[in-house]
Amino acid sequence: MDTFILNWLISVPLFAAPLLIACLGVIVTARAGVLNLGVEGIMALSAAAGVVSVLQGGSLWWALAVAVLCGMLLSAVFGIATVVFKTDQVLSGLIIVAMGEGLSGVLGRGFTHRPITGFESVDFGFLHDLPWVGPIVFGQDILVYVTVLLVALTGYGVHKTFTGLRLRAVGENPSTADTAGVNVTIYRLGAVIIGGALCGFAGAYLSLSAGQVWVEHMVAGRGWIAIALAIFARWMPWRAVVGALIFGGTEAIIPRIQATGADVPVYFLMMLPYLLTLAVLIIPAITSRGSQDDTPAALLTNYLREDRH
């Protein structure tokens, strides 16, 4: 039983990290008043781009950079459409999902099911030999530690800096921010692209580290779960950590149970993350209706300066 729990806990970060990074991307974007529903597509494209880069002879870090860049480019398409051309955010997000999945399919044609050597765990020397804590905390790959760093950076940037204040003002009340001399277009575009970079990172993590292979549809709804997680986290980075660990824990337990060879209906087991996401959306809605609504007030609304009221 101990080995079961230990193996499970060791694998939790592997599942939690991509969700968490993508969720951070959603949060940064949403704080500027833009909901990018395209996460699923951005992750798909970046996951494919990462593996293709490696299979083309690139290094892992190079592949990561390519994936992040792809995330930025695809989110820039979304940003230019919604922020500059004022297209509907929901519809544009869905288009980005389709575009990302489509691009990943076209780009990754011929590269599916070809395993790669991904990021390996960092060598912390003797620390790794500590009981329990060693393998769990000091046995992860480098990207997990980068993720921790990213959470801290995002949390600090959004909530503690002047730029973060301006970013949040754009998401709460863009006309006020505009009057205060904040360039709403630039801030929103910037937030969308930074968010896209984070989602790209998350996608790359899936293929370069967690899966070490690329197959179509490998993102399997994680982009959507990340959005649900952001709602659950009430758009706050540190709360997203809690959520991501719960989700990562749930996802991680599925292969562990399968590995024991226990006779459980495997497809029902695989429904768990989706059902959990539903639960996470429903429970707060039922228990604390309306109270503590932290959603950025201008979320989903496009800003137009010369609009007459």
Binding site: I96, A98, M99, E101, G102, S104, V106
Partner: peptide, 10 residues
Amino acid sequence: PSATITLLES
């Protein structure tokens, strides 16, 4: 791949 269709539509 069939994803091409989705890409064109998008």
